[in-house]
Every structure is written in C-alpha cells, then in structure tokens.
Design a protein around this nucleic acid. Structure first.
Lengths: 191, 191
DNA sequence: CACGTTAGATAACATACGTTAGGTATAGTA
DNA sequence: TACTATACCTAACGTATGTTATCTAACGTG
C-alpha cells in the first residue's frame, strides 16, 4: 500500500483559501498553494483534476464561510441579520467579498430567487403586516441595493474616515427604517 | 528623417481602451494591443516606457469618458444627474465600472472630498434649505451608497429581470426621495 | 520480508506575459 | 544621390503559469 497521505483535499483547499483571502481567486496557482503547504505541486494534482477544480472547491468553502457569518447573527430581525452578515463579510474578507458579490458570476443567486425565500419572512413581519406584497418586495429590493452599496464601500475602504463598524451597521439599519417610513409617507401623499 | 508614423499615442490608447472595455485593465497586454492594431509591440514601446504607463493612460481615458457621461446629463438636479451618469457608466461599460468603482484603488476620490464639493450644491437646494449641514451630509452619504449598490447590480447583471434602464433610474430617484422623507419624518418622531 | 500501490518530488513542456536587442526600410536633408 | 534618424518588425530572454512524465520511497498485504 501507499505511504501515508500528508496533504489531503481539505488541507489543500484551506491553503488555497488563505491565498484567495489575500489576493482573490486569481492568486490561486498550483505553485503558490504548494509553496504555502511546503510541498510540490504533485499533491494538488493527486486531489484535483485541474486548478479550476481546486478553485471551485475554494468557492464552495467561501460560500460555507458566508453562511456561517449569517448564522452568527442571531438577532430577532432577519433583515438586520442579513445586513450585518454582509457587512461582516465585506470587512473581514474584502478580497473574497469582491469576487463573490462585486463580479459577474453565478455565485450570487438571482434576485428573484432570494426574494422568493424572503417573501414569507417579510409577510410574517408585524411591521409589514398591512403592506401589499408588491410594496414589500420593492422595499426588500431597496434594502438589498443599499446593503450591497455599503458593503462594497466597506470592502474597498471607501467609507468616510469617521465611520467604524458600528456606525456602518447603524447607517444600514437607520436607512432601512427611513426607506420604509418614506414609502409609507409617500404612499400617504398619493392618496 | 524617419518614416511616417502609423501608430501614435492616441491610436494605441484607443485600442487598449477597447480591450479594457471587454476584459478590464488586466486584459491589456502589449501583444493584445499590438494584435488589435495589426502591428508588433514595437510602436507601443516607442510611445510608452512600460505597459503600466499605457494602462495609466487608459485609466485617464476612462476618467474622461466618465466625466463625459456626467456632462451628458443636463437635468436641473445635480444629484439626479450624478445618479443617472453612474447608472449609464455601469450599463455601458460594466468591466470598466467595476475596475474604477468596485475595486480598491485611488481612482475614486475619498468620500470627504466629494462631500466637500457637493456641500454648497446641497446648501443651495431649496428642498434642503432648512436641513442642518450634518443632516444634508448624511443624506448625501446614503444616496451615494444606494447609487453605488444599484450601479454595481447593473454592472454585474444582478438586477431583477423585469428591471430595465428606466426602471433602475426610477428606483434610484424614488428611493432618494423616500430616504429624505424618511429622515424628515424620523426626526419629527424624535421631537 | 519481498512486493506492489501510490504519495510526493523533480523537472520538463507548452503557453502567455513584459521587455529588449538587432535588423529593415522610409523620408527628409545635405 | 547618399546619409541619417527613426518607425516598425522579428526574434529572443526571463519569468510565471498549468500540466504531465518520470522517479523515489513509504507502507500494508501476501
């Protein structure tokens, strides 16, 4: 039988993940991963057909991490949790956030799909109880847009200098409230 | 004297610009530009010290184009013009928009600087006449965040499928109004 | 304890990149 | 008309990449 395995799939993915965390997925090269592991490229090709397969595994790893960041938000409001998780992702892993959320790829589910998941959540929110379904969806879209914009600024260090982590979260929540309030008052104006 | 010049600086920058438009700045290589021009790499090195210098010239070209997009918006409201120009940039040159607005670089001026430019504009807006300076700045930040998020979705094709160009502009303006209305009503609540 | 399977190392091939040395030909000038 | 300056081409060097062929050695099985 063969000698004992020293570099298994997970070890390799972890090393590649660390590299991607610093330089994005494009920084993952067989030699860079091998160097980080202190080995040659051989173990990589023993565990993956091509480097693209390794990168795909790293993407899965990132998705899992993203899910953990969301699960770590245990507040009562799902929207608040989503927003805070997004900000945490952007702050803690800016390069990965850019790759996942700010580039055209299939990692991000289409808006309609996310909307479909959130529709029942919104319907059960007492604050939105008397909203029409259309209005709820539109509010959700607006909140998602704002959340993406703020997360992008966090990931790129483009926030105003005085704005720390908490201030960013506050801005997100505050604006969410204001958009909702604005939608209500505007609708009132039209009646 | 030398033979007549066939490939001058502008011609080369224009070819590199077209390449960047399709694949981003990283797609600019001496050979790719040469191929597009139907020449060798020699003219490039006659006009530029290094490929980085060429890329810098392309960045300037993109900045100029970005300015033209803003100038093309001739409506009465400066914020509306900025927002529409940003959406146009994201829609017409998604790869370039990502490079300029969604990556960490020095192309984007710090928020404070943009804020300083816009402060007098906001002060002269009759709708904001009785707002405090702090509130105006905060509104501007929120609008910029929303604008960035929406432009990012446009550039990446992450918009809901039903949302066309006009619908995106409408969403931007509508949300701007709602945030302003929400800020007013929220402040009222506090009093 | 010998053997065969296979983890890992090494080094090579092919490609793409930036850059440069050396050659060719053009066009104004002497 | 000969000369020179130079726009352009060709081909190469060095480096980084993905990938693979070949080798070495470890280890459970017989």
């Amino acid at each position: 039988m063969p000698p004992t395995t020293k570099y298994d799939r997970d070890t390799i993915v972890e090393a590649a993940f660390e590299i991607a965390k610093e330089g994005g997925f494009s920084a993952i090269s067989t030699r860079a991963v091998a160097k980080r592991l202190g080995c040659s490229v051989a173990p990589i090709y023993q565990n993956f057909e091509t480097v693209d397969e390794l990168i795909a595994a790293v993407v899965e790893r990132v998705r899992a991490m993203s899910g953990e960041l969301l699960a770590a938000q245990t507040g009562p409001n799902p929207f608040e949790n989503m927003g805070k998780a997004s900000l945490a992702f952007a702050r803690e892993h800016p390069a990965l956030f850019r790759e996942m959320a700010l580039e055209p790829n299939d990692y991000v589910a289409p808006h309609e799909q996310i909307e479909a998941v959130m529709a029942p959540v919104m319907a059960s929110d007492p604050e939105l109880a008397d909203w029409t379904d259309t209005a709820r969806r539109r509010l959700f879209l607006k909140m998602r847009v704002f959340q993406l914009g703020l997360s992008a600024m966090v990931a790129n260090g483009h926030l105003p200098s005085w704005m720390d982590e908490k201030a960013a979260e506050d801005l997100l929540l505050e604006t969410g409230e204001e958009i909702a309030a604005g939608m209500l008052s505007t609708r009132k104006d039209e009646q």
